[in-house]
Amino acid sequence: MSRNKSEWPAKVMALIQGGNVAAAIAQIKVAPTVGDITRLQTLAARLPPTPAHIQLHKVLEEERAMLAAPRLHRSP
């Protein structure tokens, strides 16, 4: 039986679409995995380029880079 993908990206995207970008950024800072960040980046790529969304893209990229570093992976 294969494991379902995390629901985290969809839930954070719902925060963004609801206009709560600050809460979404807080969630991104505690993202479970690099894969979750990558899936959220894919979803967020469809957003219009507002100043808040541009900041969101920067945070996503920074967090993805930090989680990709082996020493910073969180234990399960």
Rank of each mutant, 00 (worst) to 15 (best):
T33R: 01
M1W: 12
A68S: 15
P32W: 04
A26W: 05
G35Y: 09
M1V: 11
L72V: 06
P76Q: 05
Q55V: 02
S2D: 11
A45V: 03
T33A: 02
G35I: 14
A23S: 15
P49R: 05
A52H: 12
T50C: 04
I25V: 13
A10V: 10
Q27R: 09
G19T: 04
P76D: 09
H73P: 00
S75H: 09
P9Y: 14
L15K: 13
Q17D: 07
A69T: 13
K5L: 15
N20P: 05
R46T: 11
G35P: 04
E63S: 03
T42Y: 04
L15G: 07
A26S: 12
Q55H: 07
K5V: 11
M13A: 03
S75I: 10
T42V: 13
E7H: 07
T50D: 08
T50L: 05
A14W: 06
V34E: 07
I37C: 02
I54M: 14
A22F: 07
M1F: 08
R74G: 09
V21D: 14
E62G: 09
N20Q: 12
R64K: 07
W8H: 09
Q55E: 06
K11F: 00
K5H: 10
V34P: 01
S75R: 15
E63R: 10
A44T: 06
A68K: 14
I28T: 03
P32R: 14
E61G: 05
K29T: 00
L67V: 00
Q41R: 01
H73E: 09
L56W: 07
H57C: 00
P48L: 03
L60E: 05
L15N: 09
A68H: 03
N4L: 12
G35H: 02
Q27P: 03
A10R: 09
R3F: 12
R71I: 01
E7D: 12
T33I: 11
L56Y: 06
I16S: 05
K29Q: 15
M13Q: 07
L67F: 14
G35F: 07
P70G: 00
V12M: 06
V30T: 15
A26G: 12
M1E: 12
H57M: 14
I16A: 04
R71P: 02
G35W: 00
W8R: 13
I28W: 00
K29I: 00
H53S: 04
P49H: 06
P76M: 09
P51E: 02
V59A: 12
A69I: 10
P70D: 01
A14G: 11
K5C: 15
P9M: 14
L40Q: 00
L67I: 05
I37E: 08
A24L: 01
M13E: 08
I16H: 02
P49N: 13
Q41N: 11
M13S: 01
A52G: 14
K58A: 10
L72R: 15
I54C: 01
L60D: 04
N4C: 03
P70W: 12
P9A: 00
L15D: 02
A22P: 01
P32N: 15
R3S: 06
E61K: 15
A14T: 13
P70C: 00
V12C: 07
E63I: 01
K5R: 13
G18V: 05
I25H: 12
E63P: 04
K11D: 04
M13D: 01
L15H: 09
D36P: 05
V12D: 04
P9S: 08
K11P: 06
N4D: 15
L56S: 02
M1C: 10
